[in-house]
Design a protein around this nucleic acid. Structure first.
Lengths: 211, 211
DNA sequence: TAGATTGTTAATCGATTAACAATC
DNA sequence: TAGATTGTTAATCGATTAACAATC
């Protein structure tokens, strides 16, 4: 196990994928798996798998491999998934609505507590059982209802302002869907989902006939 | 300029970001920029910026820097954005609908030609002016209407089957929003948007108080 | 016990950064 | 021309892979 500080981002980003594959194995009733067999399923080398996992502790057993259910739980715990995250969505357009529906459906533990918008036509409507509130009231809402994650589904022009207000209101992480790179202090985590960047990358590989 | 083959994925993924920042500079009426000044804006080192760009050619000029508009155009061209991509969305749930609206709004050049679903309640409705078609008819549709990009917005259980049918129908790239890793041949490009993985990663950084 | 497979150290590979000569 | 800044080579850093002793 790696005793010193920081684990690289590359490792962290592989963890959810390990977890997904392990879940699949659980469904199939598989109890144990070796790094070699897991490598075949997931496409990382067996060496990398062992290296990755040993950043967090020795979860395997020589001669046996890894216990699927145990490892699944361990990775969940490493990712911080054994607690609840309260989330607020800012922007109730198509994307905001999709996420309001999506996350509650797919992800126990991530709870959408509120949705905000500036558009009077949207304020008051209900999405997935959650009423859309007036963005004007965000500050007071956050004071009374601590939120862990702010989800930015606004235009790029307002994204930074929204981020600032969310952070002032005590949000710890930002899931940003606006096509800008948001500036935050070191104590705030930002995860960007830049859909247009993703599509551009796909265009590159298509037009260069590569994978 | 790098004369031999393949450019690393890390470089490609930085290109859309360069392009976004350059667009911003254009809006502000800025004509030229040095790698040093760009570094300050974008957060990559000046060295990396020059290194990245020189994979594709010498776009700068000594003593001057880079011409903003020229470089913006060059990067667009490298990414393959000076042509049109016809896209079909499979799955007209919340996410499919959001993307149908989103992409046409944000991205000229990426045209949603069709949306498919299996749900009789959704077949026939119109999203952003595009009628939802019966998934049964996907094969014949693709024969008559060549599509470049298939967008998978289905559940994970059907994602691989959908991918196979899209590829059989001649699609060159897949934009996958289902939370599975799709298997394809080397001549097909896949770009995954794993929203739940992204949210899990954010949870990690929040619960470890890191950026 | 013998065989399997981990945990971990060492070797390799690739990506980022630094340095500087070339040149506008 | 002198100053600025690139393009590019060399140095460094980090991440991946290989190897193998430890051990279940």
């Amino acid at each position: 196990m790696k005793e010193n500080g920081k684990i690289s981002n590359a490792v962290i980003r592989r963890l959810p994928r390990y977890r997904r594959v392990l879940k699949e194995l659980m469904k199939r009733g598989i109890e144990r798996i070796s790094s070699n067999d897991l490598s075949l399923l997931i496409g990382y080398t067996a060496s990398q798998i062992r290296q990755d996992l040993n950043n967090f502790g020795g979860f395997g057993q020589q001669g046996y491999g890894y216990n699927v259910e145990g490892l699944y739980a361990q990775i969940g715990s490493i990712l911080g998934l054994d607690r609840e995250y309260k989330m607020a969505i800012i922007g109730s357009g198509n994307l905001g609505q999709a996420i309001a529906n999506y996350t509650t459906y797919y992800r126990a533990g991530f709870v959408v507590s509120a949705i905000f918008d500036v558009n009077p036509k949207l304020i008051g409507i209900s999405i997935n059982g959650i009423e859309v509130l007036d963005y004007e009231n965000l500050d007071t809402f956050l004071e009374e209802n601590p939120i862990d994650i702010g989800i930015i589904c606004t235009t790029k022009s307002s994204a930074q302002d929204v981020a600032n207000r969310l952070i002032k209101g005590g949000v710890k992480g930002i899931w940003n869907f606006a096509p800008v790179d948001i500036e935050v202090n070191d104590d705030i985590s930002v995860e960007n989902v830049h859909l247009s960047d993703s599509l551009n990358t796909l265009a590159y590989y298509i037009s260069h006939n590569q994978k």
